[in-house]
Nucleic acid binder design. Structure first.
Length: 632
RNA sequence: GCCUGGAUAGCUCAGUCGGUUAGAGCACGUCCUUGGUAAGGACGAGGUCGCCGGUUCGACUCCGGCUCCAGGCUCCA
């Protein structure tokens, strides 16, 4: 007999019994023995602590979805025997499987595959773990012409390979899995997509099927409903409805036309940025949109980035539409000799750059070809790095919180220690820079993920990512060291000791791009902007024509007080107009009838909250003023 | 750029198995209505059915190319 500890109790069981012999509840799909995830069919051979895993935890979901992908692969192999298996992992929301097929799957195929999956689930086929030597596994998959599996196994370091079998279907897999196919209760195949083998453009394109599954039907319905709800927050939909911006086919993809309401929103965001940056010691500059090709040759962009640049002839020369703001800022820095006394010099610009992004990557405001970067370059001495990074992160945090973002992902990208030669700059520079970044992250209290090998060749960086309505991550803020441009442009400062020394350059952006940031912001607020951001803050509505004059005077006073106010006195009933304005998500309505005229007050209705009753105009101004701070 | 879908009025969508005048709701305009906290009524205007070619007596519909859009992949110096 051996002892196992389960749910705080110690139980004695026979050695070699399976977990599933002990636990009959089908809610549990896997277990942890001494912390290690295992199948329910695992035999217990020694004293151990046992935990049961169900769908409610992240590990449980991963196992459930991964098993679902196997079921899908079984169905596909049944219907399309010639399809070769590639990989089929669980992802954050569901699972996918990649197949190599002669003709890619169409959306019509999904229905057939779903039907076959249902049959497989009904048969409740067990998942069986089989372990074998590497060569045996290679032979097995070679025998079934599963060349991708063979490639995968050949890439593994382990000499022991685990395979999961369901009847005559076998798949290379670390596991664990649910005990049998019947555990997959409620599922849906969501979409098909092309995906390159190993994510490499030069490799074959596979056909990927995405799906989702849950133990309960209700959970699937909730999931699908949530996706539908999220689509209502889509900035592209809200952008049209709220008349914020357009992208015109006839004018070109990825190029944003800001309508008056979007333009005023953007202007507020820009004004706030300029005000905060001036206060933080940045100097604003403005640089042209085009520059001679040779400037970009000097910066290195011409060699590294030419595919993304718009190049045009001007007389006998080539000019380039700027893809970056850096060279411009460097020219201004270099315009005269700089003293250590001036450093740090911080140049900031809301600079619109143009990049030839691939058509397939464009996405509303979140991925465009005309990108307005809230760019700044910090020129400083090496010993100023730490303080400057901290200041950048402090400012970033202030901005994020001001716009109501408290939850975002922070990534620290450093070089690949195995391939140091791929990178520009000395070891000392890299180490010092990384120390500065880590130190700043710790001081600000940002938790972050360290991404080894994710740094760009010219320096380490910190990226901050925001999420859209569908939880997709988009890079916003970034702080990047640059060991390349100072060398290429030979930019220096005169130090205390009378020596010219190389200046450090730090690129940084907080919004990332105005376009992307506003896209995220629209989805974050679902179009109901706090009053300080709302393109229209107040709509004045006389109930009948008799109040028109009073309404005009109120409108004038609102505008004089600096509010973005409009009049709505169209020939519709007040209920109709209230609905109209409510739907347009304007924070405040002022409803004016005879009572208000006589008492010299306004009747206030707040978006989403309803009637606040009558108040003096002055009190409304105080109320709005109290909300102007942002975030709510 | 690659894969799978898609494009009909400003918006959301119906429709046409190839046939003469392509519909609805919302929005918009005019008129009636002057209504107290989420949709009053009548009438009206609005479409090269994404673009270019081909097949056909005839194409919005079928075929090809292109553009753009969606979801992915890749890229994101």
């Amino acid at each position: 007999m051996i002892k196992i500890r389960l749910n705080g109790k110690t139980v004695e069981i026979e050695r070699g019994k399976r977990i599933s012999d002990q636990v009959k509840d089908r809610k549990y799909i896997a277990a942890r023995i001494n912390g290690e995830l295992v199948d329910m069919a695992t035999k217990i051979t020694e004293d151990s602590s046992l935990e049961l895993v169900d769908f409610s935890c992240d590990d449980g979901k991963k196992i459930y979805w991964h098993s679902s992908s196997h079921v899908m692969a079984m169905a596909v192999k049944k219907l399309f025997p010639e399809a070769k298996l590639a990989i089929g992992p669980a992802i954050d929301q569901g699972f996918y499987y990649d197949f190599d097929t002669k003709t890619p799957f169409s959306t019509d195929d999904l229905t057939r595959i779903e039907a076959e999956m249902r049959r497989i689930i009904e048969q409740d086929i067990p998942f069986e773990r089989v372990e074998m030597e590497k060569q045996a596994a290679i032979d097995l998959f070679d025998g079934t012409s599963e060349s991708f599996k063979v490639q995968l196994i050949e890439g593994l370091d382990d000499e022991n390979i685990s395979i999961y079998r369901n009847g005559d279907f076998a798949d290379l897999c670390r596991g664990p899995h649910v005990p049998s196919t019947g555990y997959i209760r409620s599922f849906k195949l969501l979409s098909v997509a092309g995906a390159y083998w190993r994510g490499d453009v030069n490799e074959v394109m596979l056909s990927r099927i995405y799906g989702i599954s849950f133990p309960e039907v209700d959970e699937l319905n909730d999931f699908l409903e949530k996706v539908e709800e999220a689509k209502k927050r889509d900035h592209r939909k809200l952008g049209t409805e709220l008349e914020l911006f357009s992208i015109f086919e006839e004018a070109g993809a990825g190029l944003v036309y800001w309508h008056p309401k979007g333009a005023v929103l953007r202007r507020i965001i820009e004004d706030y940025w300029i005000q905060e940056h001036l206060a933080a010691g940045y100097k604003i500059n403005i640089t042209p949109h085009i520059a001679r090709g040779q400037l970009w040759q000097k910066s290195g962009h011409y060699d590294f980035y030419i595919d993304n640049m718009y190049v045009m002839p001007v007389e006998n020369e080539e000019y380039v539409l700027k893809p970056m703001n850096c060279p411009g800022h460097i020219l201004i820095y270099k315009s005269r000799v700089r003293s250590y006394r001036e450093l740090p010099i911080k140049y900031a610009e809301l600079g619109t750059v143009y990049r030839k992004e691939l058509s397939g990557t464009l996405h509303g405001l979140l991925r465009v070809r005309g990108i307005t970067i809230d760019d700044a370059h910090i020129f400083c001495q090496p010993e100023q790095i730490d303080d400057e990074i901290v200041k950048v992160l402090e400012l970033t945090k202030k901005f994020m919180n001001h716009f109501g973002f408290y939850d975002f992902r922070v990534e620290l990208s450093v070089r690949d220690p195995k391939e140091k030669t791929k990178y520009m700059g000395t070891d000392e520079e890299w180490e010092r820079a990384e120390r500065g970044l880590v130190n700043a992250l710790d001081r600000i209290g940002f938790s972050y993920t360290r991404m080894e090998g994710e740094a760009v060749f010219y320096g380490p960086k910190i990226d901050i990512k925001l999420v859209d309505a569908l939880d997709r991550k988009w890079q916003a803020a970034t702080v990047q060291f640059d060991f390349n441009l100072p060398r290429r442009f030979d930019i220096e400062y005169m130090d205390k000791d009378g020596q010219h020394k190389k200046v450090m350059v730090i690129h940084r952006a907080i919004y990332g791009s105005l376009e992307r940031f506003i896209g995220c912001l629209i989805e974050h607020y679902a179009g109901s902007f706090p009053v300080w951001l709302a393109p229209v803050q107040v709509v004045v509505m006389p109930i009948t024509d008799k109040e028109n004059k009073y309404a005009e005077s109120i409108l004038k006073k609102c505008r004089k007080a600096g509010l973005r106010a409009e009049l709505n006195n169209k020939s519709e009933k007040i209920n109709y107009r209230i609905r109209e304005v409510e739907v347009s998500k304007v924070p405040y309505m002022l409803i004016l009838g005879q009572r208000e005229v006589v008492d010299k007050v306004v009747s206030v209705r707040k978006h989403k909250e309803g009637n606040l009753g009558q108040m003096k105009l002055k009190d409304l101004f105080h109320l709005i003023e109290s909300e102007q701070g942002g975030a709510n």
